[in-house]
């Protein structure tokens, strides 16, 4: 199972866990498994149309998935996925 690192503001939805083990052959499946395990997290990560919110950044190792294959980026059993929010406002 891959490890998904959770940022501080979302840890109250993962029973304070900073890292969660997730199943999935790619990033999309891993994120799906995450919100299946912790359903109250979903509205903070996904829009109503089912797309990831724009502030969600996902890295596999040190690489942003935007520079890889996006949500289709494959994960191996030892993959480490890091979720980091862009912090923005006006």
């Amino acid at each position: 199972m891959a490890i998904l690192k959770i940022p501080t503001p979302l840890r109250s939805y993962t029973n304070s866990q900073a890292e969660v083990s997730v199943r999935g052959a790619n990033v999309a499946e891993a994120m799906g498994d995450l919100v299946e395990k912790f359903p109250t997290l979903k509205p903070h990560l996904y829009n109503n149309d089912g797309n990831l919110r724009p502030f969600v950044n996902l890295f596999v190792g040190e690489n942003n998935i935007k520079d890889l294959q996006g949500l289709e980026t494959p994960l191996d059993e030892n993959a480490r996925v890091i979720l980091i929010p862009s912090i923005a406002g006006g």
Binding site: T8, P9, L10, R11, S12, Y13, I87, G89
Partner: peptide, 16 residues
């Protein structure tokens, strides 16, 4: 006061 843009991009839990 927070703007709508602030709300769209806000994280839960955090104090703003």
């Amino acid at each position: 006061r927070p703007s709508e843009f602030d709300r769209d991009w806000a994280q839960p839990f955090f104090s703003y």
